[in-house]
Measured scan of single mutants.
Amino acid sequence: LPHTAVCLVCGEAGKEDTVEEEEGKFNLMLMECSICNEIIHPGCLKIKESEGVVNDELPNCWECPKC
């Protein structure tokens, strides 16, 4: 993702460097949905019932829970 990318919900950049544990890092890193192209911190999504499908081949790419 470009350095200028920010979260659609909170308007902040990736914050994964501020935590140690892997789950915390994931919730604070910016992810781009391969379907709707929205860039968001997974932790900013209010959807709890399902998780997005992470694409292991492309960094910061997933199918968000909304899609």
Rank of each mutant, 00 (worst) to 15 (best):
P2E: 15
P2M: 14
P2F: 15
P2Y: 15
P2N: 15
P2W: 15
H3C: 02
T4C: 04
T4Q: 01
A5L: 11
A5E: 01
V6C: 15
L8H: 06
L8I: 13
L8A: 00
V9T: 14
V9H: 05
V9K: 13
V9Q: 02
V9F: 06
C10R: 03
C10F: 00
G11C: 03
E12R: 11
E12W: 06
A13N: 02
A13W: 06
A13Q: 15
A13E: 15
A13P: 15
G14F: 13
G14P: 08
G14S: 11
G14Y: 09
K15Y: 02
K15D: 00
K15N: 01
K15L: 08
K15W: 12
K15C: 02
E16R: 08
E16G: 08
E16F: 03
D17E: 10
D17F: 11
D17A: 07
T18N: 11
T18Y: 04
V19Q: 14
E20Q: 09
E20P: 09
E20L: 08
E20H: 07
E21R: 12
E21Y: 11
E22V: 10
E22D: 08
E22H: 09
E22C: 06
E22Q: 13
E23L: 04
E23G: 14
E23N: 10
G24T: 12
G24P: 03
G24H: 15
G24V: 11
K25R: 05
K25I: 03
F26H: 05
F26G: 06
F26E: 07
N27Q: 07
L28H: 14
M29G: 06
E32F: 07
E32L: 12
E32I: 10
E32S: 12
C33K: 02
S34Q: 12
S34T: 13
S34D: 08
I35H: 10
I35P: 00
I35C: 09
I35A: 03
C36A: 01
N37A: 13
N37L: 11
N37Y: 14
E38D: 05
I39R: 14
H41A: 00
H41M: 00
P42W: 05
P42Q: 07
G43D: 10
G43Y: 11
C44G: 01
L45E: 03
L45V: 09
L45D: 03
K46H: 03
K46D: 15
I47D: 06
K48R: 08
K48W: 09
K48E: 14
E49C: 11
S50V: 12
S50Q: 09
S50A: 12
S50T: 06
E51Y: 07
E51C: 13
G52C: 10
G52W: 04
V53Q: 14
V54S: 05
N55T: 09
N55I: 12
N55M: 07
D56C: 06
D56G: 13
D56Y: 13
E57L: 11
E57I: 07
L58Y: 09
L58C: 13
L58W: 08
L58F: 00
P59G: 10
P59T: 11
C61S: 12
C61M: 09
C61E: 09
W62Q: 02
W62K: 05
W62E: 03
W62G: 01
W62T: 04
E63I: 11
E63N: 06
E63T: 13
C64E: 01
P65G: 06
P65R: 04
K66L: 01
K66W: 01
K66G: 06
C67E: 02
C67S: 00
C67V: 00
